[in-house]
Design a protein around this nucleic acid. Structure first.
Length: 114
DNA sequence: TACATGACTATCC
DNA sequence: GGGATAGCCATGT
């Protein structure tokens, strides 16, 4: 049975649109914590393997990080490529363009739009 | 209950 | 640019 923290992480992961990626730091920030390692631990043992797009989570800097699914990081890279996120030399191509940031609150998004 | 670990990050050589 | 160090917090033993 997943812990509340895990459920929160999974909920955040499901917000990531296809073709986008996010970072552990972004998730931690969205959850209101700084423990990116706890986020990593949460997704590391996700019981909802394909349901939760854990392959869309990468470390800061556009690297690939790790993956405990079948095939390891190679599968992670392949899944990302299937969604239009290409990986070259262990790094996300055009990472800044694919990076998805969670909206902390509505007011921020309102101010954000011109 | 206490300790060690980890799909990380930022900083310093 | 790459390796070492410290800090972070939830989980499992």
């Amino acid at each position: 049975m997943p812990t509340p923290f895990q459920e929160a992480v999974y909920a955040a992961l499901e917000l990531i649109p296809k073709g986008s990626v996010t970072t552990y730091g972004a998730i931690a920030d969205y959850l209101g914590t700084k423990a990116v390692r706890a986020v990593g631990n949460a997704v590391a043992g996700n019981p909802f393997a394909p349901e939760v797009p854990c392959h869309r989570v990468v470390p800061a800097g556009g690297k690939i990080g790790n993956y405990s699914g079948e095939g390891g990081v190679e599968t992670k890279i392949r899944l990302l490529k299937e969604e239009g996120v290409f990986v070259k030399d262990g790094r996300i191509v055009a990472f800044e363009q694919h990076k998805y940031v969670f909206e902390i609150n509505h007011e921020a998004s309102l101010k954000k739009q011109p």
